[in-house]
Design a protein around this nucleic acid. Structure first.
Lengths: 113, 113
DNA sequence: CGCATATTCAACCGATTGGTTGACGATTGC
DNA sequence: GCAATCGTCAACCAATCGGTTGAATATGCG
């Protein structure tokens, strides 16, 4: 039915891809630069970027031999709206965000998984 | 860690599971009743329900021989909050979001424990 | 007790996922 | 022109996913 939600949620279900999205919040990046901090091949990152592109979460524009990746946060809207259908929390809740930050940050950054 | 986000987003990436969640918005349901409208085996639905349970999106309580499924929408909070961070990265709370970014990025492999 | 109901388990299947490597096409710069 | 850089493609691999079927385990009921 809603293949859109399928692909968006599936794209978000991978930590590497979520990290890439947060990296792109800072600025647009070339594929090679996106790949740099990760301990995996460029080809693997390239695949992740196609997944994100197909989900509409980023766009890729080639300029010369460099392909620039740009965040497209609007793609999250449908998914966000879908989740808000469950109505147990306010649509835009910065307080919840702050609490989430506290919780995230209070966890040991380097604890073994 | 956000293995939480992994499992929640992965659970949401399936249309059958999303439909089940919306069904449970109406009311708690027994496993058999959840399965009834779907054109797949009860065992398949049972598996979907375990996925949802492991993601914390529902809880299952056995009463007699019937296992009741109950929506747990709070599990969506972290995921929703994570997504909303992308929707509004211009507002005042950029500081908090920056700290969130640091946390996320510090989980990239190059920080190897 | 004996049978129906409710649900899960176990084994299996094909498709997809996330990763690798090596070759390849395009583009840039000396 | 040629070599280096950027990125993808193709083939492969192991693991996971979403589904099936059939047997197994509780539990409730007459």
């Amino acid at each position: 039915m809603d293949a859109d939600l399928d692909t968006v949620f599936a794209a978000l279900a991978d930590p590497t891809r979520r990290t890439i999205l947060t990296m792109l919040l800072e600025d647009d990046m070339a594929v090679t630069d996106v790949a740099e901090p990760f301990e995996m091949s460029l080809a693997a990152i390239s695949k992740h970027l196609t997944v994100l592109t197909r989900a509409g979460l980023i766009s890729q524009e080639r300029r010369g031999r460099v392909k620039w990746c740009k965040l497209q946060p609007d793609a999250l809207k449908n998914a966000s709206v879908w989740m808000q259908g469950f109505g147990q929390f306010e649509p835009v809740n910065l307080d919840a965000f702050e609490r989430f930050l506290q919780q995230e940050l209070s966890e040991a950054p380097y604890s073994e998984t």
